[in-house]
Amino acid sequence: MNKIVEIKNLVKTYGSKEFETKALKAIDLDIYENDFIAIMGPSGSGKTTLLNMLSTLDKPTQGSILIDGVDITKINNKDLSKLRKEKIGFIFQDYNLLDNMSLEDNIALPLSLDGVDKKQIIAKTVKIAAMFGLTEHLKKYPYQLSGGQKQRGASARALITDPKIIFADEPTGALDSKSSRDLLESLESANQRNQATILMVTHDAFSASYAKQVYMLRDGAITARLNAGRDRSEFYDRILKLLASMGSGSE
């Protein structure tokens, strides 16, 4: 299987020398094609730091991150933005749809700005909207959509470029349980049917139970790893148990 992301000895420290805070302590993590990984952990465990580093928003103090074979800590800004554009899809907690265009245009945006053939864009938009159950909402503006619809729209936008990997930062953080389930099912089917590779950061054990593996992050280090079994509710129980054993509850 193809290795998409390879994190080696990743260290991130904040502050000056005497008052150093280690946000990440020597993280090693490999993500393979068609993985669906959830990263869990309490506040301050370094989840966001890790994701920022992976999404090229922040530079590590030590170590390397290889995305599709390219060390993103060593390339220049121009190549970095090319890599972001071509290989990474982003899903955020607060949707980040543009309020000045219809959902359809929002989804089509990454492709349309990339000079892709317009017929192909239109076809792909329709297809991916159907996958996220958004077909009847395509002409609407974000303010006419519910939170769940917006988040599914944002996910469709992230997936339309067929990125090598999708980084999802608390995608269900602002959603109710029904909307969360709809979104997670869509992501799950993107992972299973479209071979999408997903890295999701979440607080929520229920969301994490849709992943294939769950990593526990604590004080800047990976402390545990769980693999999904056949049954999701059983996996959910195991995640809850692990959280309880770590003493942080579902935080």
Binding site: L98, M101, A108, L109, S112, G115, K118, I122
Partner: peptide
């Protein structure tokens, strides 16, 4: 903005939409 064949070219999806919206 309704004509997607026009809109999905160059940067039009961004600025034409913004103009129409504004």
């Amino acid at each position: 903005t309704a004509n997607k064949a026009f809109l999905y070219q160059k940067q039009r999806n961004l600025w034409v939409n913004n103009l129409a919206f504004r």
